[in-house]
């Protein structure tokens, strides 16, 4: 029986089709371990070898990895949600209701997207605490910390823009409270210092630019939608790529 199984596996893995997919056969040798990382598109952002302490859960708590995984998960579920969603004030709320009651698996899709978004905000903060506590921002990794702070902000903004999309009371007023701050911005907000003198009104200041209007309305919804689904994810993807690249180039932090 074992002989037969071994034979089947051999025939399969030596076939032209299999080898065209995977490029080579994994045999558990050291050379094969190296090739598993450098010879695979999805694995190649790992180093070939890594310091022993760096893979200990007690050292990293997996928080950075979780954050990245959450980003991938939210991209996927977000894409699926976009199939069922019209970004206009007439349909948005009812589309979300539909997801709950009519769409197959729509409820778990929306629930896990929402909770996943909150989890991403949490894990990115805890990741920052971990990096601080192990002193991993010290030279030569200073710039990666700076990138990390920006990614933290972008994560807040991703979650913030997503809040409005359900077009319910919770989202609308959270966005109203959040963007009301903008009108107090010095120089470019109409209630901020020097704002009035520079000709700022409720119809041309920074808050107007954010919302596409003087209050949270249809334009604010489409702006939040574009930022949430396209704009910010693109920026985050680029910056996260640089963030990981710097981890590789600067080396994983450790006492050695």
């Amino acid at each position: 029986m074992n002989e037969l199984l071994r034979k089947i596996i051999e025939v399969l893995t030596l076939s032209q089709i299999w080898r065209s997919f995977f490029r080579r056969k994994h045999d558990g040798s050291k050379r094969s371990n190296v090739l598993a990382v450098v010879g695979n598109f999805f694995m190649h952002f790992h180093p070939i070898k890594i310091k022993r302490h760096a893979i200990a859960v007690r050292y990293t708590w997996c928080m950075g990895g979780f954050t990245f995984f959450m980003f991938l998960f939210l991209t996927l579920t977000g894409l699926l949600l976009m199939f069922y969603y019209h970004p206009n004030v007439r349909d948005a709320f009812w589309d979300v209701k539909d997801l709950k009651y009519n769409v197959a698996f729509g409820k778990i899709l929306r629930n896990s997207h929402r909770w996943g978004a909150h989890l991403m905000v949490i894990t990115v903060m805890i990741h920052m605490v971990r990096v601080f506590m192990t002193g991993s921002y010290k030279a030569p990794r200073e710039f990666n910390w700076v990138l990390g702070v920006l990614l933290l902000l972008l994560t807040f903004l991703l979650s913030f823009t997503g809040y409005l999309l359900t077009w319910d009371q919770l989202g609308m007023w959270a966005i109203t409270v959040g963007t009301n701050m903008a009108r107090a911005t010095p120089f470019i907000g109409h209630e901020g210092p020097f704002g009035e003198q520079l000709g700022m009104t409720a119809y041309n200041d920074i808050r107007f630019a954010l919302l596409g209007g003087s209050m949270v309305g249809p334009n604010a919804l489409i702006r939040a939608y574009i930022w949430h689904c396209v704009g910010i994810p693109l920026v985050v993807a680029f910056m996260a790529a640089v963030h990981f690249w710097r981890v590789r180039k600067d080396g994983f932090s450790g006492p050695l």
Binding site: V89, F93, V96, K97, K100, K107, I108, R110, N111, S112, H113, R114, W115, V121, F156, S159, F160, Y163, T166, W167, D168, Q169, L170, G171, M172, W173, A174, T176, V177, G178, M215, V216, G217
Partner: peptide
């Protein structure tokens, strides 16, 4: 988590009905 609890959804957005208190997102 997604199976046992539902994501919140309140009433249709109404600019004339300000909830008291109005809060920003938790973070």
């Amino acid at each position: 988590w997604g199976l046992i609890t539902d994501a919140p959804l309140e009433e249709f957005a109404n600019p004339n009905l300000t909830p008291n208190p109005s809060k920003a997102p938790w973070y």
